[in-house]
């Protein structure tokens, strides 16, 4: 179980971005972390995975514990070794690597003996990747790259998988595919913390949801309740029609802001 308590994060020693965030991800569950641009979702993930210092950020207060052990002072490789896998925002696959190599680098900390079995498992989960394992990853489509990024994270057999906006920029049909895959991965025993702006997708598969606004958790409820909540329905209505007329976007954005502040 992942437990975040009263987390405060600053960038450049002065920019306070998380202002006392508390989140729990129980074993075996899918938890959604929602919020608009700049709310601090990615920062939460960086804090969990020891990547803050790359961005000149640091944890100022609070704690992050994995099964009771504090992990917020670990560096990134140590968090991977502790059983946390992540798919970073924007996929970040190695475009100059083959698909096979991308997956094998995901197993960097894993037992060498486990690699072949895990490659098989990932290629079964994503047959599209299996067909193209010798090709350069840069030639994959956006959805395929997302699958590769997820597969790469799974190569280390994480207990907890962190996903940062896996639906970003993907067509609705592909989003649905990714969604089903997340459920399948979860059923195979991996807990998931799912960061999304697509609240509709995230709440449809998670048990619990948190809504983050300017560094604070403003809602923390079971997903079933969030799905019925009028404000939240509005919140994701705006996102569901992403790409619609720009005038509408502006309007929804304003309404969202009013509700969130």
């Amino acid at each position: 179980m992942l437990t975040i308590e009263g987390l405060e994060v600053v960038y450049e020693d002065v920019i306070l971005v998380l202002k006392g965030v508390s989140i729990e991800v129980p074993d075996g569950s899918i938890v959604a972390l929602l919020g608009a641009n700049g709310a601090g979702k990615t920062t939460v993930l960086r804090a969990i995975t020891g990547l803050l210092d790359v961005h000149r950020g640091s944890v100022r207060k609070g704690s992050i514990k994995l099964d009771g052990t504090p992990i917020h002072h670990l560096d990134a490789p140590a968090t991977v070794a502790a059983g946390i896998g992540q798919v970073m925002e924007g996929r970040r696959i190695f475009i100059d690597f083959t698909i096979d190599e991308n997956l094998r680098i995901g197993a960097h900390t894993a037992d060498r003996g486990s690699i072949d079995a895990n490659l098989d498992r990932i290629y079964t989960l994503f047959p599209i990747l299996a067909e193209r394992r010798k090709q350069l990853a840069g030639y994959l489509s956006g959805g395929e790259q997302q699958m590769l990024a997820i597969g790469r994270a799974l190569m280390a057999e994480p207990k907890l998988l962190l996903l940062d906006e896996p639906s970003l920029g993907l067509a609705p049909l592909i989003v649905q595919q990714i969604r089903d895959l997340i459920v399948e991965i979860n059923q195979q025993g991996t807990s998931v913390l799912l960061v999304e702006q697509n609240a509709n997708m995230a709440l449809s598969i998670s048990e619990h949801g948190y809504i983050l606004e300017t560094g604070k958790v403003v809602m923390d409820k079971p997903a079933a309740i969030l799905r019925e909540d009028d404000d939240v329905r509005e919140f994701y209505l705006g996102l569901r029609e992403e790409g619609a007329a720009s005038f509408r976007d502006v309007k929804h954005y304003k309404r969202r802001k009013r509700w969130l502040s």
Binding site: L51, P77, V80
Partner: peptide, 9 residues
């Protein structure tokens, strides 16, 4: 480098 770190490198 950041992505390499995230793979445990």
């Amino acid at each position: 480098q950041e992505t390499a770190l995230a793979q445990g490198v």
